[in-house]
Amino acid sequence: MAFPSKLLNEGEHVVVSTRTHAKALILPGLGVLVALALALFVGGLVDSSAVTIAVWVLFLAVVVWFVVGPFLRWLTTTYTFTNRRFIKRSGFIAKEGRTIPLNRISGVDFEIGVIDRIFGCGTLVVSDASTDGRVELYDIPDVEQVQLQVSHELHRLSGGDRRDDGT
């Protein structure tokens, strides 16, 4: 997913652009399967066409609520690191964004749980000097590589001459 170049400043380029891992859609998918099983079961129990129609309308509402909503959130939420800033954008109709200049970021860490390891993703923790303090980006694919690329860019931005061993 390419970040729109029209939203970049002159001389700015994308270092990493990603979105949440597709594993975020597993639970909504399971919810629809359960709703489908219930709709088929209840639809098979009743002989009334009005009740059957109501069951399927309810099923469609569940699909919209548990699948379409999360899918659109997943599809429209991106996390981008450029050589100058971190950008979080989300929304299809109503848009929301957050930008943190790279020079304000004090650290980029990652956390990988057991389930995350199975799926190849993890949580990226971006710490900054603001009152919010940190931004947690859950279920980032290849989180270790993303953290490495962002850390490299932070090091490059700071001049790259500073030694990291404290001497």
Rank of each mutant, 00 (worst) to 15 (best):
residue 154 L to G: 01
residue 77 T to S: 14
residue 115 I to C: 06
residue 125 V to L: 12
residue 139 D to T: 12
residue 36 L to W: 08
residue 108 V to F: 01
residue 132 D to H: 14
residue 35 A to P: 01
residue 4 P to N: 08
residue 96 E to R: 10
residue 61 A to G: 15
residue 21 H to T: 01
residue 23 K to M: 15
residue 84 R to V: 07
residue 135 V to F: 06
residue 156 R to Y: 04
residue 20 T to K: 07
residue 166 G to N: 11
residue 5 S to P: 12
residue 16 V to Y: 01
residue 70 P to F: 00
residue 28 P to V: 03
residue 167 T to M: 10
residue 37 A to M: 13
residue 41 F to S: 11
residue 87 I to C: 09
residue 25 L to I: 01
residue 55 V to Y: 00
residue 121 C to S: 07
residue 146 V to H: 02
residue 133 G to S: 14
residue 135 V to H: 08
residue 23 K to Q: 04
residue 64 V to P: 02
residue 109 D to T: 05
residue 72 L to F: 04
residue 110 F to Y: 14
residue 43 G to D: 06
residue 7 L to A: 13
residue 140 I to A: 06
residue 13 H to F: 08
residue 101 P to A: 12
residue 95 K to L: 08
residue 85 R to D: 10
residue 113 G to P: 07
residue 135 V to W: 06
residue 40 L to C: 08
residue 27 L to F: 12
residue 78 T to K: 11
residue 147 Q to L: 04
residue 133 G to K: 07
residue 4 P to V: 06
residue 135 V to S: 14
residue 118 I to C: 05
residue 135 V to T: 13
residue 19 R to V: 00
residue 143 V to R: 01
residue 159 G to H: 00
residue 72 L to C: 05
residue 139 D to S: 13
residue 18 T to K: 02
residue 96 E to D: 11
residue 159 G to S: 03
residue 56 W to S: 05
residue 61 A to C: 09
residue 130 S to F: 06
residue 10 E to W: 01
residue 132 D to N: 15
residue 112 I to G: 02
residue 87 I to R: 10
residue 166 G to M: 07
residue 118 I to M: 09
residue 121 C to T: 04
residue 92 F to T: 13
residue 112 I to V: 15
residue 39 A to N: 03
residue 52 T to K: 15
residue 161 D to G: 14
residue 17 S to W: 00
residue 146 V to Y: 00
residue 63 V to W: 02
residue 52 T to Q: 15
